[in-house]
Structures are given as C-alpha cells and as structure tokens.
Write a protein that binds this DNA or RNA. Structure first.
Lengths: 231, 231
DNA sequence: AAAGATATTGTACTTTTGACAATAATTAGG
DNA sequence: CCTAATTATTGTCAAAAGTACAATATCTTT
C-alpha cells in the first residue's frame, strides 16, 4: 500500500476559503482581502487559511472569516472542494470553499490579522487573485445564482426593508433578463412579506412601499403546505 | 500563528468516498463493500480510500472506485466534504464524497483489493456503516433526488431501452407521489427520445414500446433553444 | 372469440403565465 | 393651487401549461 511521507508544514494540509457575497448598485459583489504575507504577498484573495488539526471545517470557516475580516455570525454554506495537487505553490493543500451572503450596509468591513485591506468588488470586475481563487470564486458564484433561483435567499442580500422593485431588480440580475412588474408581483404573492407603513424616501416620484421577508411565517408555510419556492 | 505537527501517517490526511447509485425493483440502491481491514474490519462501507499526495481528488475517486470494485468510466460528481475531526478513529482524515449513477444490469460487480464483498442495497435498508458513511450516504442521496428532479439523469439509472412507464415509476419514486400516465407523457414531450421498433417482452398484456434517451439531440436542443429541464 | 390487462391517446376544465393597459400617488415647476 | 413628469400599483384578457378523467388500442390468456 502507498506510504505517505511528510516533510514539513506544507506537505499535506487543509484549508477553507470563504466567499462572501453582497449586493449593491445593482450588482453582486464579493469581499476580497489583500494578502500581506507569502505566498502571493500583496495579491487580492478571498479570505481563507489553514484548518487546525482538531477543528471542524465549518467551524474553521467561521473562525478564519472572523479573524481576517471581523465578520461574525454569518450563515456559511459549503460550496466546492478544490484538490488540484498544484493549486498551492508551497505544498499539497486541499481547500473547501464556503460562501455566505450579507447586507453590505450592515457591516463596515475591517481587515485585521495578516489581511491588510478589504474591499467589495463587483463580480464582473474581479482582478487576478491569489492561488486558484478566481476558479473558486466563479464556481461558487454559479452556485449562488442557482440558489437565488431556488431558495428565498435574496432577502439576505437586500436591505432589511426593501421595495418590490428592488427585489425584482435582483431577480432580473440573477436571470439576466427583464421581467414584467405586474407579473413579478403576482409571482411573489405566496411569499409572506411584512408590509411596513413607511415608504421610500428621497425619490423624485411616487414612493414605493417598504417590505420585509416574514421568515417565521415562511417556515410555517413550508410545514403546513407543500409550497416549493421557485423564481 | 498556529503550528501543526505531524505524528504519523494518520495525523492529517485526505480521502474520497464514492457513493454509487443504481436503480432496480423500483428502488434506488447504493453499492456497499465489506471492509477487510482495520479500522471497521468486517463492516459495510461505501468504497473509499486515501488520496495520494500528488493526485487530484477527482482522479483519486476514479482510481479508488476502480481498485475496490473494478468499476470504470463512471461520471463522478462531487458531493459534500466531511471534516469532523473525530470522523476517523485513527486520526484526522477529511473526506470528499463523490457520487455516480449506473445501470445495475450493465455491470457484474466484482470486489477486489481489500474489499472482500460488494452488494447493492436499497437505500432505505442501509445497515450501520463504517465511519460516518451513513451520514455521507444520506446527504448524497438527498443530492441525488434533487438532481433527478432538475437534470435528465434518470436515463443513467434506467436500462438503455426503457418503457415510458418505467421512466414514470422512477419519477414517482423521486417525488414520492403518483402521477397520471397521460399527463406524464405530455410533460416529457419536449425531451428527445429514440423510439425503438422493439417492444417489451415476457409481459402478460399489451407490451409497451421501448425508448432511449437521445442525448445528442438533447444537447442540440439546449444550444438552440432556452429549454430548461424540470420534472 | 372473449376476457383481462395495461398501453396509448383524447377531451374538457382549471390554473398559471405573459403581454399590455389603466389607474394611483408623489414630486417639481409654474 | 394646477399641471406635467415619473414611477408605483392594480386589472384584463388571451395563450400556455397542468390536471382529472374517459375512451380507445393492443397484446396475452383461456
């Protein structure tokens, strides 16, 4: 049987990389950090690091994200695992990507530890990244778009209070096609929304009503009926 | 920064596990092998083993599947990665699950190497398995059911020539609900099928026509129209 | 040739979708 | 205050897709 030999720290190890998505100005953005250590010192990258030997990988994802960006309490979902033997220049490092959604406005992103700088970058303007992070990001982005279509996660990207038009714009982005306003409203009828008394402010026209996702009612609905979300 | 130390072979390594699904007698089955070495000697398990240090993980999945079961040329898809630090009794082993579909009749399964015995087991009668393989299997099974609903993969499970009723039964299984025969046929109208001249044999009633999936025509259709598979 | 069994097709009704039009509520400028 | 401009919101109608159920067709068995 094959015998594996270890030489040093980097011979065989495991990491996680966190793709954090946000939405502003009509576009999905990803959170990038600027690396301040080798390898790829000075390159942009998605936040990631090695998993401790006795640490669960999803716990590692939360820890590493927090260490590098101060972001806490995000719901991280597993994406894909990347195992090309040459993906890391210093040895064999297999990595699992995680992703999470957040409202960009909710957090002032603050880099810490060995990440000097952090920035939200529109998904279609991602520069050359460290390691195989461009690959990781594009695979995970595809997964995000798929999830947007099949799960009510748009509300994690939109502000807490949003207009139906803002919601529609996000789906138009996901499907890359325009939708009819009246028909869109018909389609989302079954999704329980809280209707606020407030309206949009600072617009030069009739202001739209503000809504929020009624998550507890949505959970009820899933239990009591056989509703299946699909946009 | 955290310093990782290695003690022996099993301190930190990486494996793949292959979930092979088949369909017969109206039920999805998984291919299990009986282990003939420690740990979990004598237990049933899904085929899996360690990845070589310079081997791509998807290549490892193919190699290991072939070594343990003689099965070759299956289209393996990545499923989930499992990283509980205690999932392996001898050390830290993170594993990525892969899955594939096959026509049970196409292969006489033949165990080799350290797997003494192999067996197709209905998914609802899976015994206690080695490691966290029950968890891996059930997660991957959920993924399979989801894929069955959203991709034309039923044809990888059905015999090459199948009746429309056989196809319907598979979807009834996936959705766990009965369907109307006439309506089912209307629904699958857009899926290109090759109609054979042969009919079912050895049945005590009017034999059904046999069909095959017309894959090349399906690919054409995807390119030329905006058809989206959904059952 | 008739009965039994399942395959295959047809019909009518209901629901959903899609295109487009009409009405409502604000702001901005006179 | 009145009117135009602008976007929000709701309504209508026909086409398409989905659902329930019935009718007909083809084979085996007796």
């Amino acid at each position: 049987m094959y015998k594996i030999e270890f030489n040093d720290f980097f011979t065989y190890s495991f990491s996680v990389d966190c793709v954090i998505f946000g939405y502003k100005e009509g576009q999905i953005h990803a959170l990038l950090i600027k690396r301040s250590m080798e390898p790829y010192d000075g390159h942009w990258a998605i936040p990631g690091d090695l998993v401790y030997p006795d640490e669960d990988i999803s716990a590692a994802a939360s820890r590493i994200l927090s260490e590098l960006t101060k972001i806490e309490n995000l719901d991280l979902h597993q994406s894909e695992t990347f195992g090309d033997p040459n993906r890391h220049p210093q040895g064999r490092v297999i990595t699992t990507a995680y992703f999470a959604l957040m409202r960009i406005d909710d957090f002032k992103v603050e880099a810490s530890s060995w990440a000097g700088e952090a920035r939200w970058v529109p998904i279609h303007k991602i520069p050359q990244l460290a390691f195989d992070h461009n690959l990781i990001l594009s695979s995970t982005y595809k997964l995000l778009i798929q999830k947007l279509k099949n799960d009510p996660i748009c509300f994690d990207l939109l502000p807490y209070k949003f207009t139906l038009n803002e919601m529609q714009k996000l789906y138009e982005y996901a499907y890359d096609s325009d939708m009819d306003k009246a028909n869109f409203r018909k389609k989302i009828k079954p999704i329980p929304l809280i209707e606020h008394k407030e309206k949009q402010v600072n617009v030069k026209h009739r202001p739209a009503k503000l809504f929020s996702f009624d998550e507890s009612e949505y959970v009820n609905m899933l239990e009591s009926s056989e509703y299946q979300f699909k946009m």
